[in-house]
Simulated assay, not measured.
Amino acid sequence: MTFRPLQDRILVRRIEADEKTPGGIIIPDTAKEKPQEGEVVAVGPGARDDSGSVMAPDVKVGDRVLFGKWSGTEVRLGGEDLLIMKEADVLGVLEGSQRASQAA
């Protein structure tokens, strides 16, 4: 099944957090928070400005993004849990291969 977001919406797959802390402590499932990092799976054509022209989105498929804790709407497509959110809910794009947890 294919999914095409409308306007300035994007489809994001959450990237699961590590099972251990840097010190080696294993985190149980009940104590884990939902990850706030994900990979963009699909992007809509963009929002329209006041004159009616389409503004291209800043994110593209494959980008790793950070988003707010309560951002987006959770959906299940093809047996996979994904998020649909507006591009404005994205806080930033992670550049390079360094993870957000290592950068902080």
Rank of each mutant, 00 (worst) to 15 (best):
R14P: 03
R9A: 06
Q102E: 15
R4N: 11
E74F: 00
P35V: 07
A31H: 14
I10G: 05
K34A: 14
L82H: 12
S97Y: 00
G78F: 04
L94P: 02
G79H: 07
G24W: 02
L66K: 13
R9Y: 13
V61Q: 12
E87S: 08
V54S: 10
T2F: 12
L6D: 10
L11R: 03
A42L: 01
T2N: 14
A56K: 14
L66P: 01
P57M: 15
I27V: 15
Q7E: 13
S51K: 11
V90K: 09
P28D: 08
M55C: 07
G23Y: 04
L91G: 05
T2R: 14
L91R: 07
A104K: 10
P5Q: 04
E37N: 06
G46Q: 03
G68N: 13
R76H: 05
R13E: 15
V54H: 09
V90L: 07
F3G: 01
P57I: 14
S71H: 09
Q98T: 14
E87W: 04
I10W: 07
E16D: 01
P35R: 05
F67T: 12
G38Q: 02
A31E: 10
K86G: 15
V41K: 08
I27N: 09
A42K: 10
T2I: 12
P22K: 00
T30S: 11
Q7D: 13
I10N: 01
D58V: 15
L77M: 11
D18E: 09
T2G: 11
R48C: 05
G46A: 03
G72R: 09
A100Y: 08
F67I: 10
I10T: 13
D8A: 13
E74L: 10
K69W: 11
A100T: 03
P22N: 12
G96W: 02
V41Q: 09
E16C: 00
F67R: 07
A42T: 02
K86W: 00
R14Y: 03
E37G: 07
M1E: 13
E95F: 03
P57R: 14
S71I: 08
S101Y: 10
I10V: 15
R13Y: 07
I26R: 14
K60P: 00
T73P: 00
A56Q: 12
G46H: 06
E80N: 12
D8F: 03
I84Y: 12
K34P: 08
I26D: 07
G96E: 13
L94R: 11
L6Q: 14
E95G: 00
D58P: 07
A88V: 15
L6E: 06
K32E: 10
A104P: 00
G78M: 09
A42V: 06
R9M: 07
E80R: 02
G96I: 10
P57Y: 14
W70K: 09
K86I: 01
S97T: 13
A31T: 05
A88S: 15
I26S: 12
S101E: 14
R9C: 07
E80Y: 08
V12F: 03
D89F: 08
K34Q: 11
T21K: 00
P22I: 12
E19D: 06
E39D: 01
I27E: 08
A47H: 08
R13D: 11
T73F: 05
P45L: 11
V12L: 02
V43W: 04
D81G: 07
V61G: 01
P5R: 09
G96K: 06
V61S: 05
D29Y: 02
A47Y: 01
L82D: 09
D50K: 12
